[in-house]
Design a protein around this nucleic acid. Structure first.
Lengths: 217, 217
DNA sequence: CGTACAATTCAACGCACGTTGAGTTCATCC
DNA sequence: GGATGAACTCAACGTGCGTTGAATTGTACG
């Protein structure tokens, strides 16, 4: 099931590594994907249109469907996150425990700063707000790839709460800085934000949360 | 300009305080507003439809436009926030300075917890993600009614950064708890969250942000 | 009673959307 | 050099949307 005609990939297949059919206009598929990422990021799932994406890529709307089958499928493919969370986590976990909070903030910001990796992330957050499919996708993804490992690494009984607290500060930061672009947060330097938010993360990671047990009592 | 036929209000005008024309079905306008709030909150501006709102209110779609003129105008009216920020701020500012952070968190949560006041807030956040008008509206509103007063009260040179840092934690909390409903944050008690996030707010309010002066150098 | 007018509905408009299927072009393979 | 099949376009479909204007209902006032 779900084996639409769009499943067949463009290059390869026949000759081995030969160029695709149309000379000079080969990587159309990737251009569509890029345009889709931009549009989804800029407008969210619902306001982004196949027609708009096609126009941005300079092709016919039908070609988009030819490659990706449906808008929802295109969205799924455009959402492939350019940041490998496992790798990110390893980098953070390699730090001395006292530096983990600030390192998390810096790593997070470095993932968001470049324009090309920001797009799919903005698309993810923005679309998750209105689209149930996107929301479920994001929730599952974050749970399995981000919060899960952190929870496991922490080992504390309230690890899951800690992980989601960190998530809340991160998602809020992303929204204010990259989506709503509210000043002066939008223009603050990475160092400034690491200094400001790092301790928050540190506390959520291993500090006393006051409600339970760990340190203070 | 913008003086559409919908501007004229329902009751009053002629006799003084007499009931409206149609007996038994008087407060239709308010029911439409309520349905609009629910729909905007549940689906966001774009996915919410006039037809859906009308159906939820049990009336004809045309009646919605008759009262509110346009979808955008209806959205504006539905967005009237049930929380008076000035009043909230006064409550916070009345605290001893050491308790202001936790009090802010508690006040914030108490504004979001009740279902009837949560709807327009969720609508606000959700719609601001995809709709440019809503985003501008929210940004202007927050700036003038929330961040502005806080900034002024703090008096510090980095007050604006502090205000937006607080905003980022709040918006992230709202998204994780009330919109994405990610556990265990979604089910944590208010007290638990006040204990966990209160110190964060306190630090953003008057603590050392590390980037400038006191410690860390 | 008759006029006036708010409340409400009905039927339709034009538009933009996602999607489809048939058609065209062109590099490759026998 | 004809067959193949991918890359790509064109024209159209059905649907649901926001919005409109005329028509209907029912109450209050002269």
């Amino acid at each position: 099931m779900s084996g639409g005609p769009h499943e067949a990939r463009a290059a390869g297949r026949r000759g081995g590594g030969r160029p695709a059919r149309r000379a000079g206009a080969r990587c159309t598929r990737d251009e569509i994907l890029g345009a889709a990422r931009d549009c989804f990021a800029e407008r969210g799932y619902d306001r982004a249109t196949i027609r708009g994406i096609a126009a941005a890529a300079g092709v016919d709307p039908a070609l988009v469907l030819h490659y990706f089958g449906s808008k929802e499928h295109l969205f799924g493919d455009a959402l492939k996150v350019p940041v490998e969370p496992g790798q990110v986590l390893r980098r953070v976990m390699d730090q001395r425990i006292d530096d983990m909070g600030p390192t998390m903030v810096r790593t997070f910001l470095e993932a968001w700063e470049p324009e090309e990796s920001r797009s799919p992330l903005v698309a993810m957050v923005r679309s998750a707000m209105t689209n149930e499919t996107a929301m479920a996708l994001v929730r599952e993804y974050l749970g399995r790839r981000v919060f899960g490992p952190i929870t496991q690494a922490l080992g504390a009984p309230d690890a899951e709460l800690r992980a989601t607290l960190m998530g809340s500060q991160f998602i809020g930061l992303a929204m204010m800085r990259y989506i709503a672009r509210i000043e002066p947060l939008a223009s603050a330097s990475v160092d400034e934000l690491v200094a400001a938010i790092g301790p928050t993360m540190q506390r959520y990671l291993i500090g006393d949360l006051g409600g339970g047990a760990s340190v203070g009592g």
